[in-house]
């Protein structure tokens, strides 16, 4: 493998990994706070991309305004979903499995709703950043270079919010014991809703950054959801930082895996790695026993 090839694979891996980190961190955040695996998380990506596309390509809004509106739109949808679907199920027995079933149903329903509303056509969001950075023999369009940058800004802000703010304290208190938190005056229900919205926002950012490169369609969230789950398990369930690290790692493994074998084996490599690691370290690479 030559130096250029190595460097390019590294960059490819980091970019894919940044997306996995954005989506995976959201899944981890939801799991960490309310022990819910959200199978409709991929559809939050899909909605984010469609909302952005509607804003830019249909309504002709300025790019940044359209993205801000898309982000807010997805967060509202997520909040509604948390209130209408997740919260009622959480009150039931055996909820941890039922909520999986409920969100799987929701995921199917959202995909076909999107097909009904926006049609089966593949839509394209125009590139919003032009130009190509040339680093030695490597060519990196700004549109791609922006992905890891935006991802780390978004994840950094989320981390600040989680670990350095009053709101973050409330989230962590709720995560440890929702009833106890409620008892000391923390509105646990509202915290859950806010966490759901925040996570969906991270997924929407990933989708908006990807949309110009990969086209907007009702099924675009599908390939990412299982990857996000793998990331969350590898990072230690519910571990926000662990998910980010695992996301990057998975991106790199896939990128180098494709280099060595062939693209059709990419997903076999990632899921095989997941099962192998679970075998050796059942509670993830970065989490202790507690994180699970």
């Amino acid at each position: 493998m030559t130096g250029t090839l190595l460097a390019e694979s590294l960059i490819n891996g980091l970019i894919t990994g940044a997306i996995y980190a954005l989506v995976g961190a959201g899944v981890a955040l939801i799991y960490g706070t309310m022990r819910v695996l959200n199978f409709a998380h991929g559809e939050m990506m899909m909605l984010g991309a469609y909302f952005a596309w509607m804003g830019v390509a249909v309504a002709g809004l300025p790019v940044l305004l359209a993205f801000a509106l898309a982000l807010i739109g997805v967060m509202i949808v997520a909040a509604v979903i948390q209130r209408a679907v997740v919260a009622p199920v959480l009150a039931r027995e055996d909820w941890s499995f039922r909520v999986i079933a409920a969100t799987i149903g929701l995921s199917v329903a959202l995909q076909s709703a999107a097909q009904l509303i926006w049609g089966e056509k593949f839509n394209a969001l125009p590139y919003f950043l032009d130009g190509v950075v040339q680093i030695g023999p490597m060519r990196l369009p700004w549109q791609r270079a922006a992905i890891p940058i935006v991802a780390f800004v978004a994840l950094g802000l989320s981390a600040l919010l989680l670990y350095r703010s009053r709101f973050g304290q409330m989230i962590r208190a709720t995560a440890q014991d929702a009833e106890a938190a409620q008892a000391v005056g923390i509105p646990a229900g509202l915290v859950h809703t806010a966490v759901f919205a925040l996570s969906a926002g991270l997924a929407a950012i990933a989708a908006i950054m990807l949309a110009p490169i990969m086209s907007v369609n009702p099924w675009m969230g599908l390939p990412y959801i299982l990857k996000a789950f793998a990331v969350v398990i590898l990072g230690g369930l519910g571990n926000f930082g662990g998910a980010i690290a695992a996301g990057l790692l998975l991106g790199l493994v896939e990128s180098f895996g494709v280099m060595v074998t062939s693209s059709e084996w990419r997903d076999v490599i990632s899921y095989g790695l997941l099962i192998a690691i679970i075998w050796v370290r059942p509670y993830g690479l970065f989490g202790g026993r507690e994180a699970a």
Partner: peptide, 8 residues
């Protein structure tokens, strides 16, 4: 839709 590794 992600062809970058392949193109490398």
């Amino acid at each position: 839709t992600d062809f970058y590794p392949v193109l490398t």
